[in-house]
Design a protein around this nucleic acid. Structure first.
Lengths: 242, 242
DNA sequence: TAGAATATCTACTCACCAGTATGATGCATG
DNA sequence: CATGCATCATACTGGTGAGTAGATATTCTA
């Protein structure tokens, strides 16, 4: 009987987001599929990762408990711990799942028989798609501050790999004449920032797909805001990916 | 005596960032200034906000306890609660402190006697400075998921105000011919994303100031990656702000 | 100088949650 | 069908941290 009628409910304050359908089950759970125990560790492990990504997307890392994830899969918490060693690793796995396609694209962009700007287009296209994927949020938001030094270092190096790849493409583009002279470091930051931010506003079932957004962004970055002299009718000679 | 020598230490897992100088005191605390009680509620309140921003910057919102903030100010937790009602409000105040200068810049950019691209330059300049400021992190990272519906809606409307302002400048720029035809919505997202992301990599005492970074970004966005026909010797006719 | 208002502290409560101890249940295989 | 392994659950621990109760000290005011 504290008196004041102002909103008490410690719980309500601590969890600002009780969110209607909280235990919103994941669409496909290897457990719900059949009641008898399926022996496929890898499939289940990936289902756990995916469920975690889903929950992190909606409620954020810190507002998601492992009980939430377990509930979404309709299993108990120890089951989750049977497939991953702890919460941090769960975030890390989501991060890797999100960033891997980008790394692949960067590695594939080494072929020097294509103008660097076109190769950059391809990389940025995959980048945008990855950020808009189900793991995009985790990839973008995996914070230093929530990870052990080891994991943090690992993540940093993966991110750096991509950053360096983009800078290299920019430099190569300046050399082969397909890209306007610019500061590769700052330009890479601007590009990555614009694309990363997609994770903050993009939601599935939106009008545009990740690839379409990436294409639009590439056009913006290529053309620039400054009006171009209207004597180059073809603005993007290379075919956009997809 | 659990057996396995694998890393136990529940605490170490839960707080991955014990960070050497954790209770790193804030430079200027109205409390440390003089031991007798100063009667200046507003000054102290602002000191609390600033200390919170500092802590959030370094450790993130969820890894910062109100005890941390109190310790940084060399007071006790109830003292902090004497100036703010709860942790959420603390985040909100930091957000507002960060975003206010941008809103001011957007409002000031209504004067129609200057080309819209130049007005946009000014807005983006202030934007970049704000993101690189001590409140930048809080402004950019104030998550929906950590806020009550009321606060969340409030923040959304403030953000939207800026977004709409940028889109309007883009449209005006297309009309007055100072800006290349483009999709204002996507372009505003790209601009805001690139600038917001500054908060993720910028640290003070870096070689560039926030304003300098903003200037560099504006140049990148204006020129575009596509080489320009080398017949326009002056690339940015408008003087850069500052 | 007596009270009132302001400012601050010590010492709690209580919910939440990561992670675990322990044991049960099914499955394969000899 | 016994044994060992894989899989999963119940029920717990221990620690953390938001927020508070209630007392105390200091300053203002009448």
């Amino acid at each position: 009987m504290t008196g004041m009628p102002t909103s008490r409910r410690k719980t309500a304050l601590a969890r600002p987001h009780p969110a209607a359908t909280d235990t919103a089950a994941v669409q496909d759970s290897p457990w719900r599929a059949s009641r008898e125990r399926v022996r496929d560790r890898q499939v289940k492990r990936e289902a756990v990762i995916r469920a975690a990504a889903h929950a992190f997307n909606r409620k954020g890392y810190h507002n998601t408990s492992l009980d939430d994830i377990a509930a979404a899969l309709e299993v108990s918490k120890p089951t989750v711990y049977y497939y991953v060693s702890n919460k941090e690793q769960l975030l890390f796995e989501c991060f890797v799942a999100g960033i891997e396609p980008i790394r692949a694209a960067v590695r594939a962009a080494r072929s020097p028989n294509v103008p660097a700007r076109e190769r950059l287009q391809t990389v940025l296209g995959h980048y945008g798609q990855a950020v808009a994927s189900e793991f995009g949020w985790c990839m973008v938001r995996a914070e230093d501050q929530d990870l052990s030094p080891t994991m943090s270092a690992h993540i940093k190096s993966l991110k750096s790999e991509i950053d360096q790849g983009i800078r290299r493409l920019l430099r190569e583009g300046m050399q082969d004449g397909s890209i306007q002279p610019c500061d590769p470091k700052m330009t890479a930051f601007a590009l990555a920032g614009a694309l990363n931010w997609i994770a903050h506003w993009y939601r599935e079932n939106q009008s545009m797909t990740g690839a379409q957004i990436a294409t639009a962004f590439i056009a913006i970055f290529e053309n620039g805001l400054l009006p171009r002299t209207p004597l180059s009718p073809e603005r993007a000679p290379g075919g956009s990916e997809r």
